[in-house]
Structures are given as C-alpha cells and as structure tokens.
Design a protein around this nucleic acid. Structure first.
Lengths: 191, 191
DNA sequence: TAAAAAAGTTGAACAAGTTCAACTCCATAA
DNA sequence: TTATGGAGTTGAACTTGTTCAACTTTTTTA
C-alpha cells in the first residue's frame, strides 16, 4: 500500500533495513484519516501517539498567555509528528496539532512504540539518528531567529519550504516566523 | 575517579546500566584539560569528538555575516557538548566552542562513538533518550523566543540557570538571549 | 605596577516590529 | 442568495530593541 511504502522509504533515508524488518515495523502503524481543521492533539491532553504524515499537512502550535498562537512546526507529507515532551513524559501537552487540509497519518501508539524498540533493535538507531537530525534543524532555527530580520526569515522560509508555504494563510506563516500577521503583510508588500 | 563517576551518574539519569556496561563505556572516554579562553572547536574545522563536561564551563557560538556572536548554548559541569551537525555529517563546523574558565571534559572520538554503538547496544537507547530530551529543550527555547520579551527571557535564564548565569559576562549572556549587550545593560537597570 | 584591552553604562537618534482600528475581499454556511 | 466570519491590507501611534559614540570601571597582560 502506498502509505506504507512512503514510510519505508522515509526510514531507509536514515538506516538500512531488511524487508522483514520493514514489514515488522509497518505492522505497528495504523492509517488514520483526518479532515481539514480537525485536531490530532489538543493542549491539556496526553500525546499517546507518534505520527508519520502520508497525505495533507498539519500545524503544531501553542497558545501563550496573551492568547497568541505560536507555531512550532508544520508537517506535510513525509514528515513525523508528535508532542515529544508529552509522549515521553506522559504529561499533558502544551501543543495543538491541527490538520490544515484533509490528511492521512500513519499512527503508532505509545505502547507499540515501546514494543517496537524492544522487538526491532534497529529502531533505536533509527530514531536516534532521526532525533539527531531534528536537533540540527532546531539549532539552525534558533540561530536564524537571532541573526536574521523578519523579512530574511520569511524569504528563507518560502525558499526552503515552498510546498508548505503555499498551503498556508499569512496568519499561519507569521505565527511560525514569530511576527504579527499585520507585519508579514507589510513585509510582502515591500518585495 | 571522580570525572568518570560523574559520567556514570549522568548516564544513569537516562537509562539503567550494569556495572560492567558502565566500565566499558568509561573506557571510551579520555579526560582532556583545557584552559580558560582556549577553544575545543573552531568554526571551519570538523568536530571529531563528543564531550561531557566534568569541570568548568563552555560557550558554543557562531559568528554571523555582520560579525555578531550568537550563543547557541552554554555547557557547565554535567552537560554534553559537540557540534552535532559537523560530527554526524563529517562537515566543517559553523560553531566555536570556547572554555569560559579552566575546564575538564571527558572526550569520546568519532570513531570510538561508532564502536560504542556497536559494542554496547544500550548506548543507542541512551543517546536516543538524551536526544529526545534535547529536542524538548530546543522547542521550548523557540517558543520562549517568540512569546517572551527580552526582559522576560533574561529573568527566565537567570532563574533557570543561576550557576551558569553567574559565570558569564553580560556580553555572553546577551548573545544567548538574542539581544545587544547595551540593551541587556538597560534591562538590568530597570529591575 | 602601569598600560592596554575588554567589559559595562548611558544617552540620543534611529529602525524594527506591534497594536489597534478601519476597511476590503472572500469563502461558506444558513 | 445573503449575511457572517475569517483573512488580508493599510495607516497612525506606539513600544521594543539597535546603533553609535562617549564615557567609566574592571580585568588582563606586559
């Protein structure tokens, strides 16, 4: 099935995998369909899954004390998705994960994730490597936030993630860049 | 030896470890002494080590196009240290790692790190978990940068890391907070 | 110990980004 | 079809943070 092929191809970008291992891994994941604007996770609930997007697009965001939305990341096809803090520590999430369009996700439950680690030893390596790559991306984002202007960050964003950027409203993009939507409107007018 | 005890205690915060595993792991690490202001890594060179600080304090920073220093993180006793991007991808680093005071680090080479993963299976789990926790910290920092003012970030920093904060010059702290040292001076005067 | 360098302080002018309010333009639900 | 709410735009006033320069204080080095 197409969804599982996408998952296997994604995993093979990180580690080598035998066919039998690939099949075993797939058995832990279940396809979930979700409609535009629905939530995969809402703040206050415990994140009991990890997801791999096979269709559509999601936005992961917090709402701060002033009521402002703050987008942590977007996840389109071929991206992983979860609240890692809530999942790992079994605590209520601060994050909301919402579908921006009709979407499909391969979901593995918390329990099955533990089983995956014990049954398939190379899963530890897989996620260790995936997490390493993720850290690099977060570090780069911090540096960009500190060294670039809002306009430079916006240009970087639409160049690096043109497909995702094209799916977003300006409000969603601005909440990722850390600026108001009014200011993003002014930035876009300039260029 | 004290340095190795600190390493083992740190590892035991993340996973369970038998005495023999603990000893095996220690054999891969060598103690390195470094004087104040010396560099453990300079940008342009490949990061061929991962380090665990047992004494002193380090600062990891980039220098952007305008010549501004941008501090990614500080690492005092009981913290890990490396350029994960350079280490993983064998590419020249964008980071500088400098000792803020006379320091000691337990160092594992790139080669030995690979051996560690193959010889000691639980090492995969150890670093997978450490990296997970690291991601949570990076995500929280992004959200703080977007939702708090400079003054609020400064207060959070000195409350959360009082020991590290006390070792820093204002210039070093400001380069972590993403503001100029002049503005930090004005913030401190306010409160 | 003197001299030099680095760190911190302050003020004035400036730039970047926010806030709020008013308006337009759509998409879509009733 | 209409009205309703969400998204985008614009301007004016405002706040936050920067820049630059001059100065003082502290630390380092010769």
């Amino acid at each position: 099935m197409v969804a599982y092929n996408l998952l296997i191809e994604n995993i093979k970008k990180h580690i080598n995998l035998s066919d039998s291992e690939a099949n075993s891994i797939c058995e832990f994941f279940k396809l979930k369909t979700i409609k535009k604007k629905e939530f995969l996770l809402t703040q206050g609930t415990i994140c009991k899954f990890e997801g791999f997007v096979v269709k559509g697009c999601f936005r992961t965001f917090t709402i701060d004390k002033k009521g402002n939305e703050n987008t942590l990341y977007f996840a389109a096809k071929d991206w992983w998705l979860m609240d890692i803090d809530s999942f790992m520590n079994h605590k209520p999430s601060d994050l909301n994960i919402q579908a921006l369009e009709d979407s499909e996700v391969l979901i593995i439950s918390q329990k099955d994730k533990e089983t995956l680690y014990t049954k398939i030893p190379s899963a530890e390596k897989l996620f260790r490597i995936m997490f390493q790559k993720s850290i690099v991306a977060w570090q780069r984002r911090i540096i960009r936030n500190h060294s670039l202007t809002a306009k430079e960050r916006y240009n970087h964003f639409i160049e690096k993630y043109p497909k995702i950027a094209s799916k977003l409203t300006d409000r969603q993009a601005s909440s990722y860049l850390g600026i108001t939507h009014e200011f993003l409107s002014k930035i876009k007018k300039q260029s």
